[in-house]
């Protein structure tokens, strides 16, 4: 589960009003750009016709970042990256979220995100990499209101609820 997915998900346990953001803990993380570069290189090596067209991971792109930015709650991204020990290089959020307090996911807005144009290119690239490529392999998500824990196994979060929780 990438931090982008963490940013977009909330708890839907029955009766929970303030199910966002999900608490995040990890015992294993990885960077998917490194994984992908390796996979693409292996693919190229296997494929004899690939000699003419080198193709690696596309580079950082401001348009892509601008497209996704209104969907992201930056304070939550910053907090999640901090929880994983990867907040270095990220600009501080304008508003801080308390790790233990949830809000109504329906009211969440990205309006307090820093303006992309006000950030340096290096800052934008750092945010981009954390958002799209930092992957939680083993860990857990915790509903801020009910305390329900959702395990993350092999990068797949299990958000399924038991019958008495829906």
């Amino acid at each position: 589960m990438r931090l982008l997915a963490h940013n977009l998900m909330c708890s839907h346990v029955r009766g929970v009003k303030n199910g966002y953001p999900l608490g995040l803990a990890a015992t294993e993380v990885r960077f998917l750009d490194e994984v992908a570069e390796k996979a693409i290189a292996e693919q190229m090596a296997e494929d004899s016709d690939a000699s003419d067209g080198e193709y690696g991971l596309p580079e950082y792109n401001d348009d892509v970042m601008a497209n996704i930015w209104p969907k992201v709650v930056y304070s939550v991204l910053h907090q999640a990256a901090s929880a994983l020990g990867h907040a270095e290089g990220l600009p501080p959020p304008k508003v801080a979220v308390s790790p233990s307090m949830g809000v109504d996911a329906a009211t969440v807005a990205s309006s307090s995100n820093p303006d992309l144009a006000s950030l340096t290119e290096q800052e934008r690239k750092t945010i981009y990499r954390i958002l799209f490529y930092l992957d939680v392999v083993e860990g857990s998500l915790t509903c801020p209101e009910s305390g329900r824990v959702f395990p993350i196994v092999k990068s797949i979060p299990n958000m399924l609820l038991d019958e008495d929780e829906v």
Partner: peptide, 25 residues
Amino acid sequence: ALKNNNHALQDVVLGDLVLPLRPGS
């Protein structure tokens, strides 16, 4: 996804419908 050379593109989640998705996202 991997066999079709999609890399670092999607997240897969065990979940019911899109109920775990933030409303309006």
